[in-house]
Write a protein that binds this DNA or RNA. Structure first.
Lengths: 241, 241
DNA sequence: GCCGATTTGTCCGTATGTATC
DNA sequence: CGATACATACGGACAAATCGG
Protein backbone atom coordinates (compact mmCIF):
# COMPACT_ATOMS: atom_id res chain seq x y z
CA UNK A 1 0.00 0.00 0.00
CA UNK A 2 1.63 3.22 -1.15
CA UNK A 3 1.51 6.04 1.32
CA UNK A 4 2.91 8.87 -0.77
CA UNK A 5 0.22 10.94 -2.42
CA UNK A 6 1.75 10.90 -5.89
CA UNK A 7 1.95 7.11 -5.75
CA UNK A 8 -1.72 6.77 -4.98
CA UNK A 9 -2.64 9.05 -7.85
CA UNK A 10 -0.24 7.18 -10.13
CA UNK A 11 -1.78 3.87 -9.17
CA UNK A 12 -5.32 5.13 -9.56
CA UNK A 13 -4.67 6.56 -13.02
CA UNK A 14 -2.86 3.41 -14.07
CA UNK A 15 -5.79 1.25 -13.10
CA UNK A 16 -8.24 3.50 -14.89
CA UNK A 17 -6.10 3.32 -18.02
CA UNK A 18 -5.67 -0.44 -17.86
CA UNK A 19 -9.41 -0.93 -17.43
CA UNK A 20 -10.01 1.34 -20.44
CA UNK A 21 -11.87 3.68 -18.14
CA UNK A 22 -9.59 6.18 -19.82
CA UNK A 23 -9.51 4.69 -23.32
CA UNK A 24 -6.68 4.32 -25.83
CA UNK A 25 -6.09 7.51 -27.83
CA UNK A 26 -8.24 9.54 -25.44
CA UNK A 27 -6.99 12.35 -23.22
CA UNK A 28 -6.60 12.41 -19.47
CA UNK A 29 -8.50 15.10 -17.56
CA UNK A 30 -6.47 18.31 -17.56
CA UNK A 31 -3.98 18.86 -14.77
CA UNK A 32 -6.13 21.50 -13.16
CA UNK A 33 -9.14 19.20 -13.25
CA UNK A 34 -7.14 16.47 -11.56
CA UNK A 35 -5.96 18.94 -8.94
CA UNK A 36 -9.63 19.26 -8.00
CA UNK A 37 -10.32 15.54 -8.25
CA UNK A 38 -7.43 14.48 -6.04
CA UNK A 39 -7.18 17.57 -3.87
CA UNK A 40 -3.48 18.18 -4.30
CA UNK A 41 -1.07 20.52 -6.04
CA UNK A 42 -0.37 20.51 -9.75
CA UNK A 43 3.20 19.36 -9.13
CA UNK A 44 1.97 16.20 -7.50
CA UNK A 45 -0.31 15.45 -10.46
CA UNK A 46 2.51 16.12 -12.85
CA UNK A 47 4.75 13.70 -11.02
CA UNK A 48 2.22 10.89 -11.26
CA UNK A 49 1.60 11.60 -14.93
CA UNK A 50 5.28 11.70 -15.78
CA UNK A 51 5.71 8.26 -14.23
CA UNK A 52 3.00 6.96 -16.53
CA UNK A 53 4.73 8.65 -19.47
CA UNK A 54 8.00 6.91 -18.53
CA UNK A 55 6.21 3.59 -18.71
CA UNK A 56 4.69 4.29 -22.10
CA UNK A 57 1.14 4.55 -20.76
CA UNK A 58 0.56 8.14 -21.80
CA UNK A 59 2.16 10.87 -23.82
CA UNK A 60 1.80 14.53 -22.82
CA UNK A 61 1.10 16.91 -25.72
CA UNK A 62 2.09 20.49 -25.08
CA UNK A 63 -0.95 22.73 -25.17
CA UNK A 64 -3.37 19.90 -25.91
CA UNK A 65 -3.51 17.37 -23.12
CA UNK A 66 -2.17 13.98 -22.17
CA UNK A 67 -2.91 11.22 -24.65
CA UNK A 68 -3.35 7.64 -23.55
CA UNK A 69 -1.20 5.30 -25.66
CA UNK A 70 -1.51 2.19 -23.51
CA UNK A 71 -2.80 -0.91 -25.25
CA UNK A 72 -3.42 -4.21 -23.49
CA UNK A 73 -0.95 -6.79 -24.72
CA UNK A 74 -1.83 -10.26 -25.85
CA UNK A 75 0.92 -12.09 -24.03
CA UNK A 76 1.83 -15.48 -25.34
CA UNK A 77 5.29 -15.59 -23.87
CA UNK A 78 6.76 -15.05 -20.43
CA UNK A 79 7.34 -11.31 -20.29
CA UNK A 80 10.11 -9.71 -18.32
CA UNK A 81 10.14 -6.10 -17.24
CA UNK A 82 10.90 -3.86 -14.29
CA UNK A 83 12.68 -5.28 -11.29
CA UNK A 84 10.85 -8.25 -9.99
CA UNK A 85 11.63 -11.66 -8.67
CA UNK A 86 11.02 -14.84 -10.62
CA UNK A 87 8.04 -15.57 -8.41
CA UNK A 88 6.52 -12.17 -9.08
CA UNK A 89 7.05 -12.52 -12.83
CA UNK A 90 5.49 -15.96 -12.82
CA UNK A 91 2.47 -14.73 -10.90
CA UNK A 92 2.02 -11.78 -13.27
CA UNK A 93 2.13 -14.18 -16.23
CA UNK A 94 -0.30 -16.57 -14.53
CA UNK A 95 2.14 -19.43 -14.43
CA UNK A 96 3.15 -21.76 -11.65
CA UNK A 97 6.74 -21.26 -10.56
CA UNK A 98 9.18 -23.88 -9.36
CA UNK A 99 12.89 -23.81 -8.57
CA UNK A 100 15.60 -26.42 -8.23
CA UNK A 101 19.05 -25.57 -6.91
CA UNK A 102 21.66 -27.55 -8.83
CA UNK A 103 24.81 -25.88 -7.57
CA UNK A 104 25.64 -23.99 -4.39
CA UNK A 105 29.13 -22.86 -3.48
CA UNK A 106 31.17 -20.17 -1.80
CA UNK A 107 33.84 -18.58 -3.96
CA UNK A 108 36.10 -15.55 -3.97
CA UNK A 109 36.11 -12.96 -6.71
CA UNK A 110 39.23 -12.90 -8.85
CA UNK A 111 40.34 -10.84 -11.81
CA UNK A 112 38.27 -12.84 -14.27
CA UNK A 113 35.12 -12.64 -12.18
CA UNK A 114 35.68 -8.94 -11.61
CA UNK A 115 35.83 -8.30 -15.36
CA UNK A 116 32.60 -10.16 -15.91
CA UNK A 117 30.58 -9.13 -12.89
CA UNK A 118 32.09 -6.01 -11.33
CA UNK A 119 32.65 -7.59 -7.91
CA UNK A 120 35.95 -6.31 -6.43
CA UNK A 121 38.76 -8.89 -6.47
CA UNK A 122 38.88 -10.79 -3.17
CA UNK A 123 35.19 -10.39 -2.27
CA UNK A 124 33.61 -13.54 -0.82
CA UNK A 125 30.67 -14.59 -2.95
CA UNK A 126 27.91 -17.15 -3.06
CA UNK A 127 27.68 -18.94 -6.38
CA UNK A 128 24.32 -20.49 -7.20
CA UNK A 129 22.92 -22.29 -10.22
CA UNK A 130 19.20 -22.80 -10.39
CA UNK A 131 16.71 -24.30 -12.80
CA UNK A 132 13.41 -22.45 -13.05
CA UNK A 133 10.18 -24.26 -13.84
CA UNK A 134 7.11 -22.72 -15.39
CA UNK A 135 4.03 -24.88 -15.15
CA UNK A 136 6.30 -27.80 -14.43
CA UNK A 137 8.63 -27.38 -17.40
CA UNK A 138 12.33 -26.52 -16.93
CA UNK A 139 12.65 -23.41 -19.12
CA UNK A 140 15.08 -21.03 -17.47
CA UNK A 141 18.60 -21.58 -16.18
CA UNK A 142 19.89 -19.01 -13.68
CA UNK A 143 23.45 -18.38 -12.59
CA UNK A 144 23.69 -16.07 -9.59
CA UNK A 145 26.51 -14.54 -7.63
CA UNK A 146 25.82 -12.70 -4.40
CA UNK A 147 28.11 -10.57 -2.29
CA UNK A 148 28.39 -12.38 1.06
CA UNK A 149 28.82 -9.15 3.02
CA UNK A 150 25.30 -8.11 1.96
CA UNK A 151 23.53 -11.44 1.50
CA UNK A 152 24.52 -13.08 4.75
CA UNK A 153 24.01 -16.73 5.61
CA UNK A 154 22.49 -17.80 2.34
CA UNK A 155 21.54 -21.48 2.25
CA UNK A 156 20.39 -23.83 -0.51
CA UNK A 157 16.98 -23.92 1.13
CA UNK A 158 16.60 -20.18 0.87
CA UNK A 159 17.86 -20.24 -2.71
CA UNK A 160 15.16 -22.78 -3.51
CA UNK A 161 12.39 -20.48 -2.37
CA UNK A 162 12.88 -16.78 -2.97
CA UNK A 163 16.14 -14.99 -2.35
CA UNK A 164 14.45 -11.65 -2.96
CA UNK A 165 11.93 -12.31 -0.22
CA UNK A 166 14.75 -13.30 2.11
CA UNK A 167 16.62 -10.12 1.29
CA UNK A 168 13.71 -7.78 1.71
CA UNK A 169 11.86 -9.39 4.58
CA UNK A 170 14.58 -11.02 6.67
CA UNK A 171 17.66 -8.94 5.99
CA UNK A 172 15.91 -5.67 5.24
CA UNK A 173 18.01 -5.15 2.13
CA UNK A 174 16.28 -2.87 -0.33
CA UNK A 175 16.76 -3.65 -3.98
CA UNK A 176 16.90 -0.42 -5.89
CA UNK A 177 18.64 -0.24 -9.23
CA UNK A 178 19.23 -2.97 -11.75
CA UNK A 179 21.29 -2.75 -14.93
CA UNK A 180 20.55 -5.35 -17.56
CA UNK A 181 21.84 -6.56 -20.87
CA UNK A 182 19.95 -8.73 -23.29
CA UNK A 183 21.65 -11.02 -25.78
CA UNK A 184 20.94 -14.20 -27.69
CA UNK A 185 23.36 -17.08 -27.30
CA UNK A 186 24.00 -20.63 -28.37
CA UNK A 187 23.08 -23.28 -25.81
CA UNK A 188 25.82 -24.93 -23.78
CA UNK A 189 26.09 -28.47 -22.47
CA UNK A 190 24.89 -27.27 -19.10
CA UNK A 191 21.76 -25.79 -20.65
CA UNK A 192 21.14 -29.08 -22.42
CA UNK A 193 21.59 -31.00 -19.23
CA UNK A 194 19.04 -29.11 -17.19
CA UNK A 195 16.54 -27.52 -19.55
CA UNK A 196 13.86 -28.98 -21.75
CA UNK A 197 15.11 -27.49 -24.98
CA UNK A 198 13.07 -29.37 -27.55
CA UNK A 199 14.72 -28.39 -30.82
CA UNK A 200 16.15 -25.12 -29.64
CA UNK A 201 19.89 -24.65 -29.83
CA UNK A 202 19.87 -21.03 -28.67
CA UNK A 203 18.61 -19.04 -25.69
CA UNK A 204 17.64 -15.50 -24.78
CA UNK A 205 20.02 -14.32 -22.08
CA UNK A 206 19.63 -11.52 -19.59
CA UNK A 207 22.61 -10.56 -17.48
CA UNK A 208 21.98 -8.11 -14.71
CA UNK A 209 23.75 -6.26 -11.94
CA UNK A 210 21.70 -5.27 -8.93
CA UNK A 211 22.48 -2.54 -6.41
CA UNK A 212 21.12 -2.30 -2.88
CA UNK A 213 19.93 0.81 -1.07
CA UNK A 214 23.52 1.70 -0.20
CA UNK A 215 24.48 1.80 -3.85
CA UNK A 216 26.52 -1.39 -3.45
CA UNK A 217 26.59 -3.94 -6.25
CA UNK A 218 25.52 -7.12 -4.49
CA UNK A 219 24.10 -9.40 -7.16
CA UNK A 220 25.14 -10.58 -10.58
CA UNK A 221 22.77 -12.81 -12.47
CA UNK A 222 22.74 -14.52 -15.80
CA UNK A 223 19.31 -15.76 -16.72
CA UNK A 224 19.03 -18.08 -19.72
CA UNK A 225 15.55 -18.45 -21.21
CA UNK A 226 14.11 -20.78 -23.79
CA UNK A 227 13.16 -18.39 -26.58
CA UNK A 228 9.54 -19.40 -26.99
CA UNK A 229 8.95 -18.51 -23.37
CA UNK A 230 10.71 -15.20 -23.41
CA UNK A 231 9.75 -11.61 -24.15
CA UNK A 232 11.49 -8.55 -22.80
CA UNK A 233 9.59 -5.26 -22.80
CA UNK A 234 10.82 -1.72 -22.71
CA UNK A 235 9.70 1.85 -23.31
CA UNK A 236 11.98 4.64 -24.42
CA UNK A 237 11.42 8.37 -24.60
CA UNK A 238 13.27 10.55 -27.04
CA UNK A 239 15.21 13.39 -25.57
CA UNK A 240 16.56 16.33 -27.42
CA UNK A 241 20.30 16.68 -27.54
CA UNK B 1 22.04 22.54 -27.45
CA UNK B 2 19.64 22.20 -24.57
CA UNK B 3 18.09 25.41 -23.41
CA UNK B 4 16.20 24.23 -20.36
CA UNK B 5 18.15 24.72 -17.17
CA UNK B 6 17.59 21.22 -15.84
CA UNK B 7 18.89 19.78 -19.12
CA UNK B 8 22.11 21.73 -18.92
CA UNK B 9 22.69 20.60 -15.36
CA UNK B 10 21.83 17.03 -16.33
CA UNK B 11 24.26 17.14 -19.22
CA UNK B 12 27.01 18.72 -17.13
CA UNK B 13 26.68 16.15 -14.36
CA UNK B 14 26.55 13.31 -16.87
CA UNK B 15 29.77 14.44 -18.50
CA UNK B 16 31.50 14.80 -15.15
CA UNK B 17 30.42 11.29 -14.22
CA UNK B 18 31.46 9.77 -17.53
CA UNK B 19 34.86 11.41 -17.30
CA UNK B 20 35.21 10.06 -13.76
CA UNK B 21 35.42 13.62 -12.55
CA UNK B 22 32.83 12.33 -10.13
CA UNK B 23 34.18 8.80 -9.63
CA UNK B 24 32.40 5.45 -9.34
CA UNK B 25 31.12 4.82 -5.81
CA UNK B 26 31.69 8.44 -4.86
CA UNK B 27 28.95 10.89 -3.88
CA UNK B 28 27.68 13.88 -5.80
CA UNK B 29 27.84 17.26 -4.07
CA UNK B 30 24.78 17.69 -1.87
CA UNK B 31 21.69 19.23 -3.38
CA UNK B 32 22.17 22.47 -1.49
CA UNK B 33 25.77 22.68 -2.66
CA UNK B 34 24.66 22.21 -6.25
CA UNK B 35 22.03 24.90 -5.78
CA UNK B 36 24.95 27.27 -5.14
CA UNK B 37 27.08 25.86 -7.96
CA UNK B 38 24.42 26.14 -10.63
CA UNK B 39 22.48 29.06 -9.21
CA UNK B 40 19.05 27.47 -9.33
CA UNK B 41 16.41 26.01 -7.05
CA UNK B 42 16.65 22.65 -5.37
CA UNK B 43 13.76 21.35 -7.46
CA UNK B 44 15.74 21.89 -10.63
CA UNK B 45 18.75 20.04 -9.23
CA UNK B 46 16.53 17.19 -8.12
CA UNK B 47 15.05 16.89 -11.57
CA UNK B 48 18.46 16.59 -13.22
CA UNK B 49 19.62 14.06 -10.63
CA UNK B 50 16.50 11.94 -10.97
CA UNK B 51 17.08 11.70 -14.71
CA UNK B 52 20.55 10.36 -14.01
CA UNK B 53 19.05 7.92 -11.53
CA UNK B 54 16.60 6.70 -14.19
CA UNK B 55 19.51 5.94 -16.46
CA UNK B 56 21.42 4.02 -13.83
CA UNK B 57 24.13 6.64 -13.47
CA UNK B 58 23.51 7.44 -9.82
CA UNK B 59 21.52 6.22 -6.87
CA UNK B 60 20.19 8.64 -4.25
CA UNK B 61 20.61 7.44 -0.65
CA UNK B 62 18.18 8.98 1.79
CA UNK B 63 20.04 11.03 4.37
CA UNK B 64 23.46 10.20 2.97
CA UNK B 65 23.95 11.57 -0.51
CA UNK B 66 23.80 10.51 -4.13
CA UNK B 67 26.11 7.64 -5.03
CA UNK B 68 27.61 7.32 -8.48
CA UNK B 69 27.11 3.81 -9.85
CA UNK B 70 28.06 4.47 -13.46
CA UNK B 71 30.80 2.27 -14.87
CA UNK B 72 32.20 2.62 -18.38
CA UNK B 73 31.24 -0.44 -20.41
CA UNK B 74 33.57 -2.51 -22.50
CA UNK B 75 31.35 -2.98 -25.51
CA UNK B 76 32.17 -5.82 -27.84
CA UNK B 77 28.80 -6.04 -29.52
CA UNK B 78 26.53 -3.54 -31.22
CA UNK B 79 24.58 -2.06 -28.34
CA UNK B 80 21.05 -0.80 -28.67
CA UNK B 81 19.41 1.60 -26.23
CA UNK B 82 17.25 4.69 -26.07
CA UNK B 83 15.52 5.93 -29.18
CA UNK B 84 18.01 6.43 -31.91
CA UNK B 85 18.31 5.79 -35.58
CA UNK B 86 20.45 3.08 -37.06
CA UNK B 87 22.94 5.73 -38.16
CA UNK B 88 23.18 7.15 -34.66
CA UNK B 89 23.66 3.70 -33.12
CA UNK B 90 26.34 2.86 -35.63
CA UNK B 91 28.19 6.10 -34.95
CA UNK B 92 27.98 5.53 -31.20
CA UNK B 93 29.45 2.06 -31.66
CA UNK B 94 32.16 3.38 -33.98
CA UNK B 95 31.00 1.35 -36.94
CA UNK B 96 30.37 2.28 -40.56
CA UNK B 97 26.72 2.04 -41.48
CA UNK B 98 25.24 1.03 -44.81
CA UNK B 99 21.70 0.33 -45.94
CA UNK B 100 20.17 -1.50 -48.89
CA UNK B 101 16.46 -1.35 -49.62
CA UNK B 102 15.27 -4.75 -50.84
CA UNK B 103 11.52 -4.19 -50.80
CA UNK B 104 9.40 -1.07 -51.05
CA UNK B 105 5.63 -1.15 -51.37
CA UNK B 106 2.42 0.59 -50.46
CA UNK B 107 -0.10 -1.52 -48.62
CA UNK B 108 -3.27 -1.12 -46.62
CA UNK B 109 -3.68 -2.30 -43.04
CA UNK B 110 -6.03 -5.24 -42.59
CA UNK B 111 -7.16 -7.25 -39.59
CA UNK B 112 -4.01 -9.36 -39.52
CA UNK B 113 -1.71 -6.34 -39.73
CA UNK B 114 -3.72 -4.54 -37.09
CA UNK B 115 -3.27 -7.44 -34.67
CA UNK B 116 0.45 -7.45 -35.22
CA UNK B 117 1.22 -3.76 -35.47
CA UNK B 118 -1.66 -1.74 -34.04
CA UNK B 119 -2.31 0.22 -37.24
CA UNK B 120 -6.08 0.74 -37.67
CA UNK B 121 -7.64 -1.41 -40.39
CA UNK B 122 -7.76 0.48 -43.69
CA UNK B 123 -4.78 2.77 -43.02
CA UNK B 124 -2.50 3.25 -46.03
CA UNK B 125 1.03 2.16 -45.14
CA UNK B 126 4.48 2.04 -46.61
CA UNK B 127 6.09 -1.38 -46.33
CA UNK B 128 9.88 -1.45 -46.43
CA UNK B 129 12.47 -4.17 -46.04
CA UNK B 130 16.06 -3.12 -45.57
CA UNK B 131 19.38 -4.82 -45.01
CA UNK B 132 21.69 -3.01 -42.63
CA UNK B 133 25.45 -3.23 -43.00
CA UNK B 134 27.98 -2.71 -40.25
CA UNK B 135 31.53 -2.25 -41.49
CA UNK B 136 30.40 -3.73 -44.80
CA UNK B 137 28.79 -6.89 -43.40
CA UNK B 138 25.03 -7.52 -43.76
CA UNK B 139 24.07 -8.16 -40.13
CA UNK B 140 20.62 -6.68 -39.56
CA UNK B 141 17.37 -7.16 -41.43
CA UNK B 142 14.72 -4.50 -40.89
CA UNK B 143 11.04 -4.68 -41.70
CA UNK B 144 9.30 -1.32 -41.39
CA UNK B 145 5.75 -0.12 -41.76
CA UNK B 146 4.98 3.57 -41.77
CA UNK B 147 1.67 5.35 -41.61
CA UNK B 148 1.38 7.27 -44.89
CA UNK B 149 -0.65 10.07 -43.35
CA UNK B 150 2.35 10.95 -41.15
CA UNK B 151 5.30 9.84 -43.27
CA UNK B 152 4.31 11.49 -46.54
CA UNK B 153 5.96 10.84 -49.89
CA UNK B 154 8.45 8.26 -48.73
CA UNK B 155 10.71 7.01 -51.51
CA UNK B 156 13.21 4.17 -51.77
CA UNK B 157 15.97 6.78 -51.97
CA UNK B 158 14.95 8.26 -48.65
CA UNK B 159 14.62 4.80 -47.12
CA UNK B 160 18.17 4.08 -48.21
CA UNK B 161 19.56 7.03 -46.29
CA UNK B 162 17.86 7.91 -43.03
CA UNK B 163 14.12 7.94 -42.57
CA UNK B 164 14.54 9.47 -39.13
CA UNK B 165 16.46 12.40 -40.53
CA UNK B 166 13.79 12.86 -43.19
CA UNK B 167 11.08 12.81 -40.54
CA UNK B 168 12.73 15.23 -38.18
CA UNK B 169 14.38 17.63 -40.60
CA UNK B 170 12.08 17.65 -43.61
CA UNK B 171 8.68 16.80 -42.22
CA UNK B 172 9.18 18.23 -38.75
CA UNK B 173 7.78 15.06 -37.16
CA UNK B 174 8.95 14.64 -33.59
CA UNK B 175 9.61 11.12 -32.47
CA UNK B 176 8.68 10.84 -28.85
CA UNK B 177 7.78 7.50 -27.38
CA UNK B 178 8.85 4.05 -28.45
CA UNK B 179 7.63 0.74 -27.09
CA UNK B 180 9.84 -2.24 -27.73
CA UNK B 181 9.86 -5.97 -27.30
CA UNK B 182 12.91 -8.16 -27.42
CA UNK B 183 12.78 -11.80 -28.38
CA UNK B 184 15.02 -14.48 -29.88
CA UNK B 185 13.82 -16.27 -32.99
CA UNK B 186 14.82 -18.88 -35.52
CA UNK B 187 16.08 -17.52 -38.84
CA UNK B 188 13.77 -17.56 -41.86
CA UNK B 189 14.57 -18.06 -45.52
CA UNK B 190 14.46 -14.32 -46.02
CA UNK B 191 17.06 -13.82 -43.30
CA UNK B 192 19.24 -16.42 -44.97
CA UNK B 193 18.85 -14.75 -48.31
CA UNK B 194 20.00 -11.33 -47.24
CA UNK B 195 22.19 -11.68 -44.16
CA UNK B 196 25.63 -13.09 -43.64
CA UNK B 197 24.63 -15.62 -41.00
CA UNK B 198 27.74 -17.78 -40.78
CA UNK B 199 26.60 -20.71 -38.65
CA UNK B 200 23.82 -18.89 -36.87
CA UNK B 201 20.32 -20.24 -37.21
CA UNK B 202 18.74 -17.75 -34.80
CA UNK B 203 18.49 -13.98 -34.43
CA UNK B 204 17.85 -11.38 -31.76
CA UNK B 205 14.67 -9.55 -32.69
CA UNK B 206 13.43 -6.16 -31.58
CA UNK B 207 9.93 -5.14 -32.52
CA UNK B 208 8.96 -1.58 -31.79
CA UNK B 209 6.06 0.82 -32.08
CA UNK B 210 6.88 4.50 -32.37
CA UNK B 211 4.58 7.42 -31.59
CA UNK B 212 4.93 10.96 -32.89
CA UNK B 213 4.41 14.21 -31.00
CA UNK B 214 0.66 13.92 -31.50
CA UNK B 215 0.56 10.57 -29.77
CA UNK B 216 -0.12 8.81 -33.07
CA UNK B 217 1.39 5.41 -33.76
CA UNK B 218 3.17 5.93 -37.06
CA UNK B 219 5.89 3.31 -37.23
CA UNK B 220 6.16 -0.39 -36.67
CA UNK B 221 9.55 -2.01 -37.01
CA UNK B 222 10.93 -5.46 -36.69
CA UNK B 223 14.70 -5.44 -36.50
CA UNK B 224 16.47 -8.79 -36.81
CA UNK B 225 20.05 -8.88 -35.58
CA UNK B 226 22.78 -11.46 -35.88
CA UNK B 227 23.34 -12.41 -32.24
CA UNK B 228 27.08 -11.84 -32.07
CA UNK B 229 26.52 -8.24 -33.06
CA UNK B 230 23.70 -7.54 -30.68
CA UNK B 231 23.37 -6.28 -27.13
CA UNK B 232 20.37 -4.53 -25.66
CA UNK B 233 20.86 -2.43 -22.54
CA UNK B 234 18.39 -1.34 -19.93
CA UNK B 235 18.17 0.08 -16.43
CA UNK B 236 15.31 -0.56 -14.06
CA UNK B 237 14.42 1.04 -10.77
CA UNK B 238 12.48 -0.79 -8.10
CA UNK B 239 9.26 0.76 -7.01
CA UNK B 240 7.31 -0.16 -3.97
CA UNK B 241 3.89 -1.59 -4.57
C1' DG C 1 -4.10 36.90 -38.44
C1' DC C 2 -4.99 38.24 -33.78
C1' DC C 3 -6.68 37.54 -29.19
C1' DG C 4 -7.99 35.11 -25.27
C1' DA C 5 -8.85 30.75 -22.92
C1' DT C 6 -6.99 26.37 -21.99
C1' DT C 7 -3.28 23.25 -21.21
C1' DT C 8 1.24 21.63 -20.58
C1' DG C 9 6.37 23.01 -19.50
C1' DT C 10 9.78 25.23 -16.57
C1' DC C 11 11.27 27.23 -12.39
C1' DC C 12 11.18 29.21 -7.90
C1' DG C 13 10.74 29.55 -2.70
C1' DT C 14 9.11 27.47 1.27
C1' DA C 15 7.55 24.13 4.66
C1' DT C 16 7.62 19.69 6.61
C1' DG C 17 8.91 14.82 7.03
C1' DT C 18 12.42 11.27 7.47
C1' DA C 19 16.90 8.94 7.34
C1' DT C 20 21.86 9.17 8.50
C1' DC C 21 25.58 10.32 11.26
C1' DC D 1 20.21 15.63 20.38
C1' DG D 2 21.51 18.53 16.46
C1' DA D 3 23.26 19.01 11.82
C1' DT D 4 23.05 17.40 7.28
C1' DA D 5 20.87 15.37 3.34
C1' DC D 6 17.29 13.54 0.62
C1' DA D 7 11.80 13.05 0.00
C1' DT D 8 7.34 14.93 -0.38
C1' DA D 9 4.17 18.54 -1.08
C1' DC D 10 2.29 23.13 -1.76
C1' DG D 11 1.36 27.42 -4.19
C1' DG D 12 2.62 30.70 -7.34
C1' DA D 13 4.70 32.82 -11.54
C1' DC D 14 5.66 32.90 -16.24
C1' DA D 15 6.57 30.63 -20.81
C1' DA D 16 5.04 28.06 -24.80
C1' DA D 17 1.82 25.44 -27.61
C1' DT D 18 -2.97 24.71 -29.13
C1' DC D 19 -7.48 25.88 -30.40
C1' DG D 20 -11.68 28.45 -31.20
C1' DG D 21 -13.92 32.70 -32.17
Amino acid sequence: MPKAKFEKIYKDLKEKIESQDYPYQGLLPSENTMVDIYGCSRNTIRRAVSMLADEGYVQPLHGKGVRIIYQPVAKAAFTVGGIESFKESAARNHKIAGTKVVQFAEITSDERIFEKTGFPVGSPLYYVQRVRYLDGKPLIFDINMFLQSVVKDLTPAIAASSIYEYLENTLGVQIVTSKRKMTAERTTQIDEKYLELNDYDFLAVITSQTFDSNGILFEYTQSRHRPDYFCFQDTAIRKRT
